[in-house]
Design a protein around this nucleic acid. Structure first.
Length: 259
DNA sequence: AGCGATGTTCGCCG
DNA sequence: TCGGCGAACATCGC
């Protein structure tokens, strides 16, 4: 699930339910995704209040007054608020119990994902060499970043050090909407094509954030619902093809997305 | 019942 | 140095 739009919806869910809640207790059902010493983690978080939230790429940071709780959801993570112990979601890995008696669970079906405390956000982002957030990056910065690259379009979009937040599914959608082939080389794009790529990146992400948060239908004309099996292109009716790029399986429409 | 999966990281190769 | 590629991580679902 979690690419930028999903993580943004987790942030929204967090803000609606858990912001300004005091953490009374922490229940670690499975410490696998906890990437630091358990006792240090408990010490850093027990008795603190969730003061703020910030999404950066696919990361969610929760301000504790002193330091931040870092959440990365891997391929199958989720965040779920619940009211009583009997409603604990399946695959809960770490659960925060609030002063109010309610709970927030970090869910992870598989064990990919990351939970830890970081002292300084900007330092962490710098250390990880994360690029600008894909939803907030300016046209100018996007052009500047992308012009330095020589990789395939799909690879460039998914590279977190170039811009941060796009994964396999949304890179497919962006390229489909931009009518560009996933394996086209990014240094072959003209300026106006590069601007088109920026516009589509922004529009797809913006639309998707809104859609995921409001739990709306996927818009007509999107590729996403047709990623499975031998589906047909929602715009021209041709058969969608599967293509391995950057060791991930992508989908595209050959007639709509020429090299 | 084997394969693939929304992510990241590392090592190897051209 | 950059970029592509594959594997590994662990487990669930089709």
């Amino acid at each position: 699930m979690p690419e930028l739009p999903e993580v943004e919806s987790f942030r929204n869910h967090f803000d609606q339910t858990s912001l300004n809640e005091g953490v009374k207790d922490v229940i670690i059902r499975n410490g696998y995704i906890l990437k630091m010493d358990k006792n240090k983690f408990l010490k850093a978080i027990k008795g603190k209040t969730f003061q703020s939230s910030r999404r950066y790429g696919k990361y969610l940071f929760i301000g504790l007054g002193e330091g931040y709780l870092l959440l990365h959801f891997g391929m199958s993570g989720n965040l779920q608020y619940f009211e009583q112990m009997g409603d604990e979601p399946e695959y809960s890995k770490i659960i925060f119990q609030f002063e109010s008696g309610k709970y927030l669970s970090i869910i992870s079906i598989r064990k990919l994902g990351k939970v830890k405390i970081v002292e300084n956000l900007d330092e962490y982002i710098k250390e990880k060499e994360l690029g600008p957030d894909a939803l907030r990056i300016s046209r100018e910065k996007f052009m500047e970043k992308m012009k330095k690259k020589r990789s395939y379009l799909k690879t460039a979009l998914m590279d977190q050090e170039t811009i941060c937040g796009i994964g396999n599914i949304y890179s497919d959608e962006i390229l489909f909407q931009a009518r560009m082939h996933p394996k086209k080389k990014i240094n072959k794009l003209s300026d106006s094509e590069m601007e088109g790529l920026y516009n589509n990146t922004h529009d797809v992400l913006e639309t998707s954030v809104e859609r995921v948060i409001a739990e709306k239908e996927i818009p007509e004309g999107f590729l996403i619902p047709h990623r499975d099996k031998e589906e047909k292109c929602p715009q021209c009716g041709s058969e969608i093809k599967r293509l391995k790029v950057s060791n991930r399986h992508g989908y595209y429409c050959p007639p709509c997305q020429k090299r």
